[in-house]
Computed example of a mutant assay.
Amino acid sequence: MTQLETAMAILMKTFDTYAAGEGKPDTLTNAEAKTLLQKELPGLLKDAKNQDAVDKLLKGLDFNGDSEIDFSEFVILVASLTCACHDRSGKK
């Protein structure tokens, strides 16, 4: 597999691993999403001084308002964070 194919497979596997914990197997509950963020994106949460900020982030991920985070919503988060990190890397 190419690097991009590998990255996509890892993204899908990571989502599926955390979504399988409780509730529907194809969505993340708030608890599953918090666990995923804490374990897979610890740098994102280390600056969060309070739980309200984390809860606000999770609520913001739920674009369709169904109180769950589906794979499309998760991918939007990852893509947004990737863009933010890329912008900070200082293009030549």
Rank of each mutant, 00 (worst) to 15 (best):
V54F: 00
K56F: 10
T35H: 13
L57V: 08
E73N: 09
I10W: 08
F63D: 05
D87Q: 12
P25N: 06
L77K: 07
P25A: 06
H86R: 15
L61Q: 08
A48Y: 03
K24Q: 03
A33H: 05
M12F: 14
K92M: 05
K24M: 01
M8W: 06
E5Y: 06
K46L: 03
K56R: 14
F71C: 04
C83K: 14
D16H: 13
L28H: 10
D26A: 03
L81P: 02
C83F: 13
L4T: 11
S89M: 14
L4S: 13
D70S: 03
T14F: 11
G90K: 07
N50C: 01
A48L: 04
L41M: 14
L37G: 04
L36E: 08
N30H: 13
G23D: 07
L11K: 02
E68G: 02
T82K: 15
K39G: 04
T14K: 13
V78A: 15
M12A: 15
T82E: 15
V75L: 12
R88M: 13
Q51L: 02
I76P: 03
T17I: 03
T14D: 14
K13L: 10
A20Q: 02
T17Q: 07
G60H: 07
K46M: 06
L45H: 00
L36W: 10
G90L: 13
A48S: 01
Q51H: 04
K46T: 07
A33S: 12
C83E: 11
G43H: 06
L11R: 01
A79H: 04
L41I: 06
L45N: 00
F74Y: 15
K49R: 09
T17F: 12
L77Y: 10
E32Q: 04
T82R: 15
L81A: 07
Q3S: 14
A53T: 05
K56C: 01
A7I: 08
L45D: 00
E40C: 14
Q3H: 13
E32Y: 00
A53P: 05
A79M: 12
N50V: 00
A31G: 11
M1S: 10
M12Q: 15
A31H: 11
L36M: 12
A31D: 14
E40A: 11
K56L: 12
K46Q: 11
L4C: 07
L11C: 09
H86W: 15
L81K: 11
M1Q: 06
T35W: 07
G90W: 01
P25D: 05
S80N: 11
L28V: 05
A33I: 04
K13S: 12
A31L: 13
C85L: 13
C85S: 12
L44A: 05
T6A: 15
S67E: 10
S89Y: 12
L57N: 11
T2Y: 08
A48C: 07
L81F: 09
S80A: 14
T2F: 09
D55M: 07
E68D: 10
Q38D: 02
M8N: 04
M1W: 03
L11E: 00
S80M: 12
N50P: 00
P42A: 10
G43T: 06
